[in-house]
Design a protein around this nucleic acid. Structure first.
Lengths: 232, 232
DNA sequence: CACCGTCCTGTTGTATACAACGATCTGCGC
DNA sequence: GCGCAGATCGTTGTATACAACAGGACGGTG
């Protein structure tokens, strides 16, 4: 955790608060902090060896992006999204990804396309090895490449933001039975559509791909609730 | 610092920085500050009778939402979106609005629908009176109601954010010739589709409606450049 | 025993002071 | 006249100190 000081010369040329924001976001996304955990500014300040100010700035930005929630005068907590909020976000994500796909089908460069195929190949390898974490990573690359392929920087930025926000939850349901295999098959259809330049199919497949994740998660939550483990 | 007498009800909280953020956002959206204007933290602090800290927080949040841009060590400026950035945002906006329409066609409550028809009637009145500002306001209501009608709070929030970001530019092209009339006709088709619960048509019409605004703006910019007036 | 008022403590939000970085301007040398 | 180097100034980013608010606990009272 304390591996951050080896960046630049003392004093740091890169804005400290921004670095902290990324660090915290990563920590949350990677599950280092669990949803519902309290993020104590003073503790974080000690941990990252700075004052409360940049911590505060990082936290408010994370709050704005929806990754943490502030309870006024009570503390800041890692966002614990309700099922409704989650489904809503997956709905929007599906639409944005579908849009990325539609645009990418027409605009994607050959380089990006081949990189996409490489990512898909890496996904396949992880799938065959049952390497869930590896798949998780390569899956992120896969989607990121499609965002870039849309050649709409603003869209790509928004998609990345939502992707990051949903990451912790997305990761959960990759462990579902045969989810890796079906996910990879869906990817395959998407790649085919993109290669063919078939915008409608790419859009439809990508939207379905993401929506399915939302539904799968819904199932997961339902089953967890049935087991008496409150997920939220 | 003097206690603000704008205090809400006892339950209401008074986050000063957030109020400033809204105030600044309004000021920018309303054209009080022009794109490219420098926002001097100290001047703003004097103007709003507070220190640089909440101003700074407001500005960084506005920067995150894309309404202002920071030039490191040079100052913070009202975002002067390039034509490309603008077109990208309109593209995304069109998709989100279309999505709102698709969902609203199925989920919209009767109350919201009748409110929408009222807004549309008000739009018609403004159109007949040639009241561009009035139309501008009622148009905002019209779209906001559709966002709410989607019954996806997250989507509505994102749509509102983008809507606010594009407001200054959207306003410009309402002055284009016959734009009010054609805008109103497009609204009419949208309302019809929503009443009929025709999700596909609502989505298509809304997307086209917004995309058209983007294209119109593109035309406007092109003509302004032809006239030698830099568009911001 | 229950209820209510008060005090305490913990938290956030704000102000001010400070330091470091970068851009710009100026003067000197070529 | 031009280019480069150094100083100056303005800007941001960070730290610390401070104030206000709310929640909870505790004790007193009915």
């Amino acid at each position: 955790m304390g591996k951050s000081l080896l960046n630049e010369s003392p004093g740091g040329r890169i804005p400290q608060a921004q670095r902290l924001r990324d660090l915290l976001e990563d920590a949350i996304v990677e599950g280092h902090y669990a949803p519902g955990d309290r993020l104590d500014p003073e503790a974080l300040a000690r941990q990252y060896q700075c004052s409360r100010t940049p911590i505060r700035e990082a936290l408010t930005h994370l709050a704005a992006s929806g990754m943490v929630k502030v309870a006024p005068k009570r503390g800041t907590f890692v966002a614990r999204l309700s099922v409704t909020e989650l489904v809503e976000r997956f709905e929007v994500m599906a639409e944005l990804e579908g849009m990325c796909g539609r645009l990418a089908a027409r605009r994607m460069s050959d380089e990006t396309l081949s990189a996409l195929q490489q990512a898909q190949a890496a996904c396949r390898q992880c799938m065959l090895n049952g390497d869930v974490n590896g798949y998780y990573y390569e899956n992120g690359e896969f989607h990121r490449l499609i965002y870039e392929g849309s050649h709409n920087d603003f869209l790509a930025q928004e998609a990345r933001r939502l992707h990051a926000m949903l990451k912790p939850y997305r990761r959960l349901q990759l462990h579902a039975r045969h989810r890796l295999e079906s996910s990879w098959c869906e990817h395959e259809r998407i790649v085919t559509a993109l290669i063919a330049g078939d915008a409608d199919t790419a859009q439809r497949e990508l939207r379905a791909h993401v929506l399915l994740q939302g539904e799968r998660f819904n199932d997961l939550v339902a089953s967890m609730q049935r087991l008496g483990q409150t997920p939220a």
